[in-house]
């Protein structure tokens, strides 16, 4: 069985607000000292794949794939050190930023080249632009069934059994194979840390770099057909709240004062 996990390299979205800068002119985030990281939900997706492999009988091959610049190699290297079997980088250096539609088209072309595939995993959304689309677009492009907000997958003959989150709990769905799932976090798929030995092994592995042009798609046509959203502005919203701190010697005193204050304000 062949499982492909799509990893998006993004500027760390968890850097403190104090270090967060944008260039209003070009309407882009300034990377500064921030690291390029794997989108967190894609880490959850890889973890979900690894656990599925551990529980299943038989051979499961995991491929990690990213569209990114050459600095994204580290992200794929990390996937290898987590014991993905192979990793592929689709180089988009020198290209304008891809929208979700172009991303899906390019990934689909790469996936066709990687066939046969039984399962494709994406994150529910990227932590930079929160597109929330690429996984669903791939399902449409390939005409495969799709389950969203998945956190656990098992194999059942020609089907997958997937646990997925709903607004008030979760459900288990049975899904035809091949399938796509978009992955969300829960307590079962917290990403593991690579073992030192595996990290060393990963360094010896070759990571093929594919060129978008080689994939045989006309990217400019893809873009023209779909660039209908114009980014007019990007800014950092202001917060101007002043916190009033409850003073006191010990916790008990502060707690009682807090209650008083909330009463005074008629909140409780």
């Amino acid at each position: 069985m062949h499982v492909v996990v799509c990893l998006k390299p993004i500027i760390d979205p968890e850097i403190p607000l104090a270090d967060f800068r944008i260039d209003r002119e070009s309407k882009r985030i300034i990377q500064g000292n921030a690291n390029l990281v794997t989108n967190i939900f894609d880490e959850n997706a890889l973890e979900t794949a690894l656990q599925m492999r551990e529980r299943a009988e038989g051979d499961i091959r995991i491929t990690a794939i990213s569209i990114g610049t050459s600095s994204s190699i580290d992200i794929l290297r990390r996937a290898l050190s987590l014991r993905a079997d192979q990793a592929i980088l689709i180089n988009n250096e020198g290209m304008p930023e891809l929208d979700t539609f172009a991303t899906a088209k390019i990934l689909a072309a790469a996936l066709r080249r990687l066939a046969p595939i039984d399962l494709i995993l994406c994150g529910r959304e990227a932590g930079d632009w929160h597109g929330g689309q690429v996984g669903s677009f791939l399902a449409e492009e390939l005409s495969w069934p799709c389950a969203t907000f998945v956190s656990r997958i098992d194999i059942d003959g020609e089907h997958f059994i997937m646990r997925r989150q709903t607004d008030d709990g979760w459900e288990v769905v049975k899904c035809q194979r091949p399938a796509i799932a978009t992955v969300t976090n829960d307590e079962t798929n917290v990403p593991r840390i690579p073992k030192v030995r595996d990290s060393m092994m990963a360094f010896r592995k070759e990571i093929p770099i594919w060129n978008i042009m080689e994939l045989g798609i006309d990217v400019s046509a893809v873009r023209d057909a779909h660039v209908t959203l114009q980014l007019r502005d990007m800014y950092i919203p202001e917060v101007n709240k002043r916190c009033s701190f409850i003073e006191g010697e010990v916790g008990k005193e502060k707690a009682i004062r807090l209650l008083h204050k909330l009463r005074e304000m008629h909140i409780i």
Partner: peptide, 26 residues
């Protein structure tokens, strides 16, 4: 149609303008 959408977990906000229909919004 002008759309306000926060990005980077709300650290920044963007203003997007949809020029050609259709546009789908959540």
């Amino acid at each position: 149609v002008q759309i306000t959408k926060p990005v980077y977990g709300g650290k920044a906000e963007t203003i997007l303008v949809a020029h050609n229909p259709p546009v789908t919004i959540c």
